[in-house]
Design a protein around this nucleic acid. Sequence first.
DNA 1: CCACATCATAGGTGAAACCGATTTCAGAAA
DNA 2: TTTCTGAAATCGGTTTCACCTATGATGTGG
Lengths: 301, 301
Amino acid sequence: MELRQIKYFVKAAELLSFSEAARVLNIAQSTLSQQVRVLEDELGIQLFDRHSHVISLTEAGRELLPLALRTLHEADSCLARMQDLGKLATGTLNIGVTYSFSPILTETLLEFAKRYPGVRLNVLYKPMAELMELLSARSLDFVLAFRPSERIEGIESHVLFDNHLGVIVRDSHPLAAKQSVGADDLRRYNLILPSKGLQARNAFDRCVAQAGLAFDIHIELNEVNILLELIRHSNMITVLSEATIYNRTGIKAIPLELPGSEMEGCVHMLRNCYRKHSALEFIRLLRDSDAVRARARSWLD
Amino acid sequence: MELRQIKYFVKAAELLSFSEAARVLNIAQSTLSQQVRVLEDELGIQLFDRHSHVISLTEAGRELLPLALRTLHEADSCLARMQDLGKLATGTLNIGVTYSFSPILTETLLEFAKRYPGVRLNVLYKPMAELMELLSARSLDFVLAFRPSERIEGIESHVLFDNHLGVIVRDSHPLAAKQSVGADDLRRYNLILPSKGLQARNAFDRCVAQAGLAFDIHIELNEVNILLELIRHSNMITVLSEATIYNRTGIKAIPLELPGSEMEGCVHMLRNCYRKHSALEFIRLLRDSDAVRARARSWLD
DNA sequence: CCACATCATAGGTGAAACCGATTTCAGAAA
DNA sequence: TTTCTGAAATCGGTTTCACCTATGATGTGG
């Protein structure tokens, strides 16, 4: 029993004519006749009464018609759902984001939600390492994070934009007017840093170690928003990627004069793995967003 | 999209292995691989992530699986229902009966209902002419009635048993002891007859006319049960087919001495038309019933 | 009675479902 | 690193069968 045969049967049953049904279905009348016969043989029961001129449904045929229709509708809904998925009319998109990437994301998040209201968005804020675990376990479609210091097996990363570490201060801060900040400037103010393991902290530690320096850290905080609130209302300073304070008011980022402070904003995806249309479309939107466009490298097409 | 492909997909999705699924389905692994690919192409969306070693469902695949299962179940229910129909586990049987045939039927009716509780019985008591109309319109599966005087186009009749007209009287009636009744005896008692058009009346009128006789009819009644009640409680007499009073108490039928009083109890069916299994089975039971067996002619196998 | 429409049948053709063998690939073992 | 292994993809060849055209059978309307 195949859907094709069911389709043929239904059309013939509706029109009560093999010839007419064959015309509508764009097949030869003989083919329809045959296929109905095959179906009847398989079901072990006659579906049509044949009189040389007229056909009519047997009891079995009358019983089958609504059931056959239901079957076709079920099959149709399979097709429709799959096509919708392709057109982003439905589905779920699981996105992992590091805290520092968050402000870059929000703009695109809103835009995507507006354009594709059928797609459910599931955004997870976590430290990079955890996100990579989840990505490997296929719980996430992609991760937005800066490139980690060491490659992770099975994951491919595409650079969205270049960024660098910056010293974050409030607008009224003495350092706010400077073009760049050196290591000595940092020592003059209370330095409050993101917790160890967070990406900006990793990068900062790395380039400090590289330069053979050492800093005495008074406060560590694993929540960037709160950290920035502290910065905004005090003369304390911190070091984050410049992108992290995108769109924030009352604070500014000043380039840090240390080698190795470059960071690459990346999309991380599982290698050799099917990419959802919605995922690719989201990344396309992200790449075209104001936050990213200025320094985007094009790898996506 | 065909049910076969959906079956393949479902099995592969359940086992998460093309090789294993192919084994279970008794097809080659390459075939499964191909057919899944064909399905994906048609749906325009990938269903599996392929890594050389492992496959896993894409989002689309996960979405499709339950829908695909529903489709297969619908198809299954088509098959099951059709097979049940063949085995008389379900369906409807529409039977037309004339009033005079009714007592012959009841026994079989109960037996059939007991044996095939899944089959709905729809029994219609009507005059023969109306029943034949309904049969031609395919509203009835078969009609139980005596053979009509003239053949009806498109309907074939099979004799179940032979019968004859009888004079019906109550047990205590003066005629009750006689072996047969002639025309003169009829004149001596109040004759109450079924209405014109009913089969026994037709037969009676025919053989009376044939014999060149004439009767003065005092009462006509179109309801046999009420007619028989009158007979049972009075000295009135009537003429019906002998079979009509089968299983009735308090009255008896005495053969009528008139030529042409033979009647043939028949099953009437539409020619060149699919016969329901349930219909054939019902007729088989009827033929084997006590009421019919004694004088059955075998035409059914 | 004949033209016509309908369904069934027969024979031939091409697409595609299928198979076995081979290749490719990633991960495990050495 | 190389080798081995198991699973999926790919490749030709075969067979099946869905399909078509042509024809036959049959009942219908003019």
